[in-house]
Design a protein around this nucleic acid. Structure first.
Lengths: 227, 227, 227, 227
DNA sequence: TATGAATGAGCGTTCATTCAT
DNA sequence: TATGAATGAACGCTCATTCAT
């Protein structure tokens, strides 16, 4: 995750203890955002991270900065997952989709924001990551259509939407069971991706409609507080 | 909706204006909970409803009472939808499932809490409604299995899970487009419900596991703040 | 003072207790601003006024609103003083100036902001009051020049500047002694206003220069914290 | 200014860079105190001085130490100005007063604290400087009374009071115009110092009253935040 | 009954000050 | 020595909740 990688060009390397604190803050934020939404008191994140609230503010000047970094880390993980999956596209496109979506389910805990909806960000890094994710998914779909291994009407946006839906927490369920339910749902969805017996899907939103809301780039981001 | 129906046994009939206020509060709460989570300031709900905050408190002694009522109204709507769908089960079980899930998508705005995750409630009315919903869905599934119109491994819990997933808001998207994407996802899912070409699903959580967490009764309820 | 006058057109009359609280808050603010500057903690103002901080916020949504009201009350008092003085202009213009300036010294405690510098305000009421103050002073000066009772090179701006200077607190001095020193200074200044033995004063800033900074209207307002 | 002179008896000579830092801190403090009051965040002073906050703390163990040094530098400047003026007393006492007061106006920017009100200090150096300032002014006044060039009822305290009044910033005015207005005010005041046509001034506070509050020594110092 | 008003408690954020490098 | 980092405490402001009208 780029977020915890110090020494990035232009930002001076963090001192060892500071870097540790920073990583702990991000880990705590990830959990807290997922459990209690992005409006969770920052005090609580600091407490979970074992640092003072002012230390959190030193690293992340405001809530948005913290959210954005969690978001970027999440997008990076999504991209890695998509690229890993894309390597399977030549062999078996449907399995590649499965690898992608199941990979995300397996990392649900790390994906609070990019998929279940963080605030929109205008961070250029985030946009770039979103573009690359979409590109990797298109690669899989193109191959799947060419081999008639996937129904042709499914788009990258549909996969991102699906990712957003199945990664959201099912509160009040222990993680293991929530994952089991999401995996079962995914199983049915994957069977529906076969090219046979396909019903006609309603037309997707046009690219213009989506672009206006950054959907392609930011599947399901949202500003609000959520679980 | 039972929530706004006065004269229920044991509660004195409300004066006309009081009943109107109560209904306006519930409508405002539904919208506000969906947009800003159940932690939204009660002031805001009162303002949107056009009443004083103290009036809201008179009707609903605390936040939980308000949430519970919104929840009950939502469960009632889900049950109505499930019963309507069940009538089609004799003719076409797969279409019945579609009717149920598409019906919920079409009423997403009214379903903030029961499906996208409101707080758990121990209200006995809620439990009864949840039981009846599950029962109506079982009716559809039983018929579907008997006619081999549905894959046999899908359960009522799976349908409730699916309902919970597809009804959640996709923030940052205008309602129309969010609905379009959810509907496309549902289309693929429904194709995956056919009995042919079914992959093996992982075993569902046992009834005991679920019961401990009220999942069957309360698909995806949660305590926290959410959109 | 307009600030404490309820029932103004458009704002509903305050309840009796609320009006009392409001007046106490304004009185406390006047004192605290004078003693500790406009950056004084609002908690302290609330405490001095004997109300809860939230009550203060209910009446004055932010610090600026409170400052502005104190400012308006002060300008109103300055205007009253100027008008009273102007009535003497026909008889004795120099005494009229003395009445004006001594009157302000005697009310120093009520004049923290308009003269010793509150933040600039764009409040139209304030502008109107400032205009009327300048006008009353011009009336005195015109009469004084006509009768050769005042040196002709002194302007309304000079009188406002003088007012600003002599009304500022001399911290660390008990009020009585500070007033005595200011009064002595004023005595010398008034002798300097006689038409005889006048040295040449440097040219005043042009009206354009002043207008750009609202000096004519707002003699010595300032944004910052001050004693 | 003594403040920036290293090598004073008892304090070890500072390394060159340390001395430069110290001077920069003092310069930044002078400006910041004037603009934003003595309560201005020390961070900001450090930033303006281009040093780390911890460096500031190494030089000045607390805010008071910094304030006191700025105060001492200011008193030194006032004393220099008074002594320069006193040399003219033999020739022209009224001009000597003018030289003193106009000299202070011209250095307003360097005089934030001693005249416009810094916190009281018990620093013995400050007391000594204040005593010497009063002494130089007395010299002028004595000469002026002897030659009947000045009204006899004006005291050194009056001159210090006047200095305090005319050196205060007139916020919201650009420096040039504020200086112009202060100079015009001074012009009238100086004309009022002539021995003719003098009205009776109220009695000055007794020396005892003043001594209790260090007025003679510290014309208008105050503890609070101010512009 | 409905409302304006008041309050206490909580969270966001900043700052003075100290510590580790 | 100078600095990055960490901390505790203060203050601004909002909100849930209760009281008086």
């Amino acid at each position: 995750m780029t977020g915890s990688t110090p020494g990035r060009h232009g930002t001076p390397r963090l001192r060892a203890d500071a870097a540790r604190n920073r990583a702990q803050i991000l880990a705590a934020a990830r959990i807290a955002f997922r459990e209690s939404g992005t409006a969770v008191p920052l005090d609580e994140i600091a407490r979970r991270a074992g640092v003072n609230i002012a230390t959190l503010y030193r690293r992340f000047p405001d809530r948005d900065a913290l959210i954005t970094q969690v978001l970027l880390d999440g997008f990076t993980l999504v991209l890695d997952t998509a690229r890993t999956a894309a390597k399977q596209a030549q062999t078996d496109p449907l399995t590649a989709v499965e690898t992608f979506l199941q990979g995300l389910i397996d990392n649900r805990d790390l994906l609070s924001l990019p998929l279940i909806g963080g605030p929109m960000t205008n961070d250029p890094q985030a946009h770039e990551l979103q573009r690359e994710i979409a590109s990797a998914l298109e690669e899989i779909l193109t191959e799947g259509r060419a081999r008639q291994a996937l129904r042709p009407d499914v788009t990258a946006v549909d996969l991102i939407t699906t990712a957003a839906l199945i990664c959201r927490p099912l509160p009040h369920l222990p993680p293991q069971q929530a994952t089991a339910l999401a995996t079962r749902h995914l199983g049915v969805f994957l069977d529906g991706l076969r090219p046979e017996h396909t019903r006609t899907l309603p037309p997707p939103p046009t690219h213009e409609e989506m672009a206006a809301h950054l959907v392609l780039e930011n599947g399901s981001a949202d500003t609000s507080t959520q679980p």
